[in-house]
Design a protein around this nucleic acid. Structure first.
Lengths: 181, 181
DNA sequence: AGCTACATGTAACGAGTTACATGATTAT
DNA sequence: ATAATCATGTAACTCGTTACATGTAGCT
């Protein structure tokens, strides 16, 4: 449900093509929403059909033509309505935890190594996010409201990766104790 | 993909009916995987078709008959194979963050109140989880491996709710500053 | 009389994933 | 040569959600 709204919100400040949106989603929106190219194209098609956005065909030389999308008044209204509705906390689906639960079927080192691998991935992402924080949000008192919102999403990403790393460490420590099994 | 594996893992220790599984999922599995009754029945149907589980019809008086499911050797093999494959970190989809990004379209108090509402929900869940921790996992040195795994998932839930609460507080503080807008 | 718990299912739809298809330009 | 980037799309499939359908037992 939110992909449509994320697209509308993104198109609110600037026109984008499907491809541009996909790149944006892979960059700045990645802390809070992920989408594949196909999902984006499908959603753009739906939104245009219902009149929330309109497209303009931009012929390009040397490159494939592109469709630039813009939000309509109807699209803005749709977004506003949605903003006023409460959002439920997202449901949790943690594949790694399912593996932990089932892990007695394989040797203990399998799950311990897998958790350690995840720890490394989260460490990597955390350092990446912290770099962005230093580069782009060093002086938070000077930020516009829009930039502040972006910063808030980045902070969420930073806190998320931190929580994951800490959990991985706790899990490794708890599960590697040689008490029984 | 993991729902099937969660079911197999759960049936590994004991036989359950679809209804029993659903209740289990609403109770002890809720920190890491959520599923509706319908999803569970559909998945049980698929798993039985492929021979990973078998059912036994238990006639009951006064109550509807039930189907008790058991894992087969084939099911155990399926689980083991899956356990040895690496799992990717789950993708993040945070509706609340999408709302933050789009929030300049409505008055600031709308988003602030929504974040505060989420903070309350997470506070509620955290205290619930901490109660379970005290009640069932007070002496962790005495736990069996299986119980320890359960504890690890509970710790993940506790850390998750904590991270969420802290982020909500930071977001409220950052966004309520009267710098500009 | 109405609600909750028990118990299983079908149908339809919405959202996410993966594979396939096309084709030019630019950089290595 | 070949890989990456730009650019848009179709098709098939899986997974998640919501609504509908049925029926008993026990509690308030």
């Amino acid at each position: 449900m939110s992909l449509a709204h994320t697209i509308l919100a993104t198109l609110g400040s600037e026109s984008y093509s499907g491809y541009d949106l996909w790149k944006k989603f892979s960059q700045t929106s990645k802390y809070y929403w992920q989408a594949t190219q196909q999902q984006i194209y499908r959603e753009l098609g739906k939104l245009e059909k219902e009149g929330a956005i309109i497209s303009e065909l931009i012929p390009q030389e040397g490159r494939p033509n592109k469709k630039l999308y813009q939000v309509t008044d109807k699209g803005i209204e749709k977004l506003k309505t949605w903003l006023l509705e409460p959002a439920e906390p997202m449901s949790i689906r943690e594949e790694l935890l399912v593996k932990v639960i089932a892990s007695r079927l394989v040797s203990k080192s399998v799950i311990l190594q897998e958790i350690e691998r995840h720890r490394q991935i989260h460490l990597q992402k955390l350092s990446e996010y912290k770099e962005i924080e230093q580069r782009e949000f060093s002086d938070i008192s000077q930020l516009s409201y829009d930039k502040k919102c972006l910063y808030v999403t980045l902070r969420c990403g930073i806190r998320y990766e931190t929580y994951r790393i800490e959990w991985c460490e706790e899990a490794i420590s708890l599960l590697s104790e040689e008490a029984d099994k």
